[in-house]
Design a protein around this nucleic acid. Structure first.
Lengths: 177, 177
DNA sequence: CTAGATAATTCATGTCAATAACGATTCAGT
DNA sequence: ACTGAATCGTTATTGACATGAATTATCTAG
């Protein structure tokens, strides 16, 4: 939480700047999610992995790394975390003994449920200013952007490095000029 | 760009999950912005600082740090970068010689213009799937969320650490359940 | 004039992403 | 079969960055 700075007027910053608004709200949502999921002892990418594994059980580490867009070497530590928490397990593949096939444990599935509930609560929280019809509209517009921008639908782009700060720029924000 | 993984079906991932969609699209926008602004030799937070300084000239480093929600110690290096590029200058305040008052140089204002143009191009790019009326709707819905969530309007929440990865979770995304 | 607060800065620490290198295993071509 | 290239998971190294304590200079109050 940035200290209260309401004393400084927000200048002319606009309702224009859809780009900035998207980035701004997206970062806020991500931060809120990170904060809340921390109470489960997890970080956001852990949740992302659990989600992918729920949809694609038996994935190999390489395949998972490709899907998420992370380096396999980075994935190792992440999967170690989840294994230590007994949320996933690495099963040795009889066919190819170089690879593991990744699966959620029972506890992993339960954690998935908890995260799902959390997401629902968050959604109501975020959309508090919107009525039901508006939520549907928002979801539809965003879905269309995802499709047109060729973002992999179920996967969060944030796994790849964010260029150095998380997009704190001012895309179309300020009076700029 | 994560390798092409279109082979793996996106599972049932939903048009539901506004939270995830927001985070997803926001991260995508931020990443794109970071990528493009890198051609100016800047990172996103540099752009954010230039923007704030354009709207609030003469700010002190403390005030700027409070406004952005960064540690003053971190701001030092960031302002050093911008000073080295001659985009801003630290003027000594005659009233209080402990403080600097921060100002954009001529080059700084010009850079601001360039970033503004870039933001416009990006906006058209992102909203390619939307018509004019829909863009306005999207902007309005997002603006309402910003207001209700008590986000400081002109300021990007991403300056504060992102909990550990940029919000890569699966907020309401997967079939989860 | 002294004591405490404040501004900018430096430094030390911890976390984490990106890259290269390594051992084990599998596969292709002969 | 056998050899060499490719693949998988892992480890180690490097570099960037957030965080917080300590430092120096200046201001304000009594």
């Amino acid at each position: 939480m940035p200290g209260d700075l309401s004393k400084i007027p927000p200048s002319q910053t606009p309702s224009s700047g859809v780009g900035f608004l998207l980035s701004q709200v997206g970062a806020h949502v991500a931060a809120t999610f990170a904060e809340r999921i921390a109470s489960f002892g997890l970080k956001p990418y852990h949740a992302g992995i659990l989600n992918v594994l729920a949809n694609h059980p038996g994935l190999t580490q390489q395949a998972l790394a490709d899907l998420l867009g992370v380096f396999p070497s980075r994935l190792v530590a992440l999967l170690d975390d989840l294994t230590k928490l007994e949320l996933i397990e690495r099963r040795t593949s009889p066919a190819d003994r170089r690879t593991y096939s990744l699966h959620l444990t029972q506890a992993g599935h339960e954690m998935g449920s908890k995260i799902g509930s959390l997401a629902e609560v968050m959604q109501d929280d975020i959309c508090g200013a919107l009525n039901e019809k508006e939520r549907v509209t928002l979801a539809e517009l965003l879905t269309r952007i995802v499709a047109q921008q060729k973002i992999t639908p179920g996967v969060h782009p944030g796994y790849r490095k964010l260029g150095g700060g998380g997009g704190c720029g001012d895309e179309g924000a300020g009076d700029g000029r």
